[in-house]
Amino acid sequence: MSLLDVVGPVMVGPSSSHTLGVLRIARFVHKFMKGVPEKVKFVLHGSLADTGFGHGTDKALLAGIMGMRADDERIRDSIEIAKNVGLRYSFEIEDLGEVHPNTVLIIAWKNGKKVEVQGSSIGGGKIEINRINDCECQVNWEYHTLILVIKDLPGAIGNILENVSVNISNLYLKRIDAIERIAVAIVETDEEVKEECLEAIEKNSYVLEFYHVGRDEDAL
């Protein structure tokens, strides 16, 4: 943790793992889908399922999926707001297997597209996104984040990264299927990646799937 993590952040109570963290996971999905979905299902696991009720976890998740920031005072009224904007939502409890006790799976639908994101609230408001659709990953969302499913071939990563003109802060690469020759790359940058770079990456022949989520404005 940094000094600022110890003395902050500003949040809406009562608990950094049950409200702040889950709000950020839902807000990640909001940014990922570039807007409020038409329909959303929250699947709660472990401690979130056991003690989330009445803790405001439901309100925090809805607030996040509607794009509210962690210090938004409308969070406590988010159920009302969701109803007013016509967002269809449901909560379910399910054992998601060998995952962190504070884990939620968010399934959202927008414009005929379905997105599945699984994330864990790992304490102090910190999060880890551990699955996006079928792609397993580890994303803390403290940077501008590019998530790439790519061909596991010589020169692939170099070819793709040539398109990224800003400095890369962290790079993570892992083979996920040796027979199909598929790998996952996560690229984190301090500065925003330009729109034309993103388009070039999307068109790159080594790239099979590509997701981009800008850094949250809340993060320093």
């Binding site: 902050g8 952040p9 949040m11 809406v12 109570g13 702040l20 210090d71 406590r76």
Partner: peptide, 16 residues
């Protein structure tokens, strides 16, 4: 009490 009512707080060092 504001924290327990989902009010805005600074988690210094925690919400509780």
């Amino acid at each position: 009490e504001s924290n327990a009512a989902m009010g805005r707080v600074v988690a210094c060092p925690t919400g509780g």
